[in-house]
């Protein structure tokens, strides 16, 4: 995944079955953000893999005051990359089978 300066990682082990998974997001390189970023630490949230969109969560983070509107896209992309990796790994483990 492209280094957006915003890091997103699993906040819990993924058993491959959970519909909602806990993720943790933090800014590693504030210089890559367009808007003014007030250091807020790592933000943990739950993401419903099949129902929700990364962009929707990013917008909620903007509305909650974590990021400036101009950074919604970069935050959404960072979440999207991690979610895609989670789904890819799940598909691979299904294909690998018992």
């Amino acid at each position: 995944a492209e280094d957006t300066g915003v890091r997103v990682e699993l906040a819990e082990d993924d058993d491959g079955k959970k519909e909602a998974i806990a993720l943790k997001l933090w800014v590693e390189d504030p210089k890559k953000l367009k808007g003014k970023y007030k250091e807020s630490g790592a933000i943990e949230f739950t993401f419903e893999l099949e129902k929700e969109t990364p962009e929707g969560v990013a917008q909620e983070m903007v509305e909650s005051g974590f990021f400036h509107e101009s950074d919604a896209k970069i935050v959404g992309k960072s979440i999207r990359d991690r979610v895609a990796l989670i789904k890819w790994r799940r598909e691979r483990s299904v294909l690998a089978g018992p």
């Binding site: 790592a42 933000i43 909650s64």
Partner: peptide, 27 residues
């Protein structure tokens, strides 16, 4: 370390805690 919480109007809970130590880039 204590974790702060922000609940969005749509109901999602955001829990804020210190950035994982090992992941801090040297700025």
């Amino acid at each position: 370390s204590c974790a702060a919480q922000v609940v969005h109007s749509a109901g999602r809970r955001f829990i804020v805690s210190p950035v994982p130590e090992s992941r801090l880039r040297d700025q």
